[in-house]
Write a protein that binds this DNA or RNA. Structure first.
Lengths: 146, 146
DNA sequence: CATGCCACCTCAAGTAACTTGAGGTTCAAG
DNA sequence: CTTGAACCTCAAGTTACTTGAGGTGGCATG
């Protein structure tokens, strides 16, 4: 088994990470992935470390960090130029954002569930449905903005 | 008090909804808000209903639903052009999407919490921090893709 | 009555984060 | 040795906004 996760191509990295190939190249271009080592001078080659870094980037993006901020975070993890407090603030900030999102989603989950039920009833009666998704979601959405 | 929430300008709608003025106009342009009634033939005028609709749109966007899909959802609520089955399918579809999102967010919440804790410890010791966001997020992020 | 000023208007261009496409190499398999 | 998948670069397209330029209408104050 040469395939010990220490020298693979971009396609493999894509499969492993779930990030599409052009997107990986894009991340390199904008500097949140380091310029990949080039095998034979042409093809990008990656290892475990690269995979971890990409996973970090992916995660951060999913959390809603903009690329600029990710660059900052990466910069932060370089012990030379970081205050721990900055890192802490950034991530706990992000945490409360995530918590908020979960709440919103859960209330929507509930109303959506109700709606599906209600809808199913109407449907089984063969009548024009009163599937007021708009209305049902509004209660929670208006609160969410506060 | 004329200000009974039934005839206000775009700026007020913006304040009430938390959606920026040009963004509201944009939503109208792309058809997920109805063309606003024009007061004096020029200025857009809104009421409670509009606010609710906008709140729905805002919520959906924050949840990551693309505008196309929101248009679909809104379309659904118009009883004329929906079969109940379609409505049911779409919304239960939406429901499983929401459930998935909640799961992802929860795992992210957990790792972020851990990270904040870990970071806080290091910081309080006044040492160059090992705030390995990079590392700490990787565990879950690699799993998250599964 | 003129003169700000503010909130509104439209239309055009800019931005972020990708995605898609054209056109061209490389490499492993048959 | 050729064929096809996977790689490459560079440019243009897409989505969802944001920002900016240039202009209008209303009312408040000097």
């Amino acid at each position: 088994m040469e395939n010990d996760m220490n020298d693979f191509a971009i396609g493999e990295l894509s499969r492993l990470s779930g990030v599409k190939v052009p997107n990986i190249r894009y991340y390199e271009e904008v500097g949140i992935l380091p310029p990949a080592f080039r095998r034979n001078g042409r093809h990008r080659s990656y290892n475990k470390e690269d995979l971890q870094r990409l996973a970090f980037v992916k995660n951060s993006r999913e959390l809603g960090f903009p690329i600029k901020q990710i660059r900052k975070l990466i910069h932060l993890t370089d012990p030379d130029n970081l205050t721990c407090d900055e890192a802490l603030e950034l991530s706990s900030n992000q945490l409360s954002l995530v918590k908020e999102k979960i709440k919103t989603l859960q209330s929507i989950e509930k109303t959506l569930e109700d709606h599906v039920d209600q809808c199913r009833n109407n449907c089984s009666e063969g009548r024009a449905p009163q599937c007021k998704i708009l209305v049902s979601q509004n209660g929670s959405s208006l609160r969410a903005g506060d």
